[in-house]
């Protein structure tokens, strides 16, 4: 609960800081919005020729975009440092968070905002409002799903970033892990062969931040929601455990690879 207060404080601070450069803020948000919209052109063209692919139509894919972009946007807007965890660890900048009495993980994550994330969030919300069928009754479900998606992205980011505790320079690997999850999430999971599908429900949980919540929103089934909740809780618990485990191995700025 105390961490929630801290996250809220930082959110306000981050926005205040961003407002110091209002032009750049607006440009980033709307640039990202436009950027995301253009990605949909491809799907529109494709589904014009092939209206139904393995059970997915244009509305289905747009719904995937709506939940994935909202969840991703939300998490990087609030936890702007999520994609920089490995960097913060490897460079020794974690010292700062450890010297203060707040929870270092939440503190580290929330001390920055990703401006373009606000654009992704806006894009996701707009898609939900304009395209996703079902009307306003689905709003509570949508909000819940977006929060779950955001938390799964968060768990992936923390797990990937924590690699730096063991590997030192893990920035590229962590970024790749996180980005792969994001990239895969924007395609219906049913397009992929079995082996890959297993991967998309586990190590790169793209299905759980894309297809599964989209399906839950389109055709509600308790199993889908249950799967999401259980996975989110498990992934977050694992991510926290790994991060605090790694903290014991933290070497501050002393991680040196000597060439010999």
């Amino acid at each position: 609960m105390k961490s929630l207060g801290l996250i809220w404080r930082y959110l306000r601070h981050n926005l205040m800081s961003a407002m110091a450069y209002r032009g750049a803020f607006v440009l980033q948000v709307f640039g990202m919005l436009l950027n995301d919209l253009m990605l949909l052109v491809f799907w529109t063209l494709l589904f014009q020729r092939f209206p139904l692919l393995n059970g997915w139509d244009l509305t289905g894919v747009v719904t995937i975009y709506a939940v994935s972009a909202s969840g991703f946007g939300l998490v990087v807007a609030v936890f702007g440092n999520l994609t920089r965890v490995a960097h913060v660890i490897a460079s020794g900048d974690l010292d700062y968070y450890l010297a203060l009495p707040a929870n270092p993980l939440w503190h580290l994550l929330s001390s920055r905002t990703n401006l373009s994330g606000w654009g992704d969030l806006l894009f996701g919300v707009l898609l939900y409002v304009i395209v996703v069928p079902g009307g306003w009754q689905t709003l509570p479900l949508y909000v819940l799903l977006v929060i779950l998606v955001a938390l799964i992205f968060c768990a992936v980011g923390v797990l990937a970033g924590s690699l730096a505790f063991w590997l030192g320079q893990a920035q590229d690997l962590a970024a790749q892990w996180f980005n792969a999850t994001l990239s895969f999430s924007l395609y219906p999971v049913d397009f992929f062969p079995g082996v890959v599908r297993v991967l998309l429900y586990t190590l790169l949980p793209a299905a759980l931040v894309g297809s599964v919540p989209a399906r839950a929103l389109l055709q509600f089934r308790w199993q889908n929601l249950g799967l999401m909740v259980v996975f989110t809780l498990g992934a977050m618990a694992l991510a926290q455990w790994v991060f605090f485990r790694g903290l014991r191995r933290y070497e501050s700025g002393n991680m040196i690879v000597t060439r010999g």
């Binding site: 440009l27 980033q28 436009l34 950027n35 253009m38």
Partner: peptide, 17 residues
Amino acid sequence: MEETQPVFWIYQKLLFT
């Protein structure tokens, strides 16, 4: 402009489409 990244995104997405 203070920030040119958004212009690049748009260019990139024009290549995509």
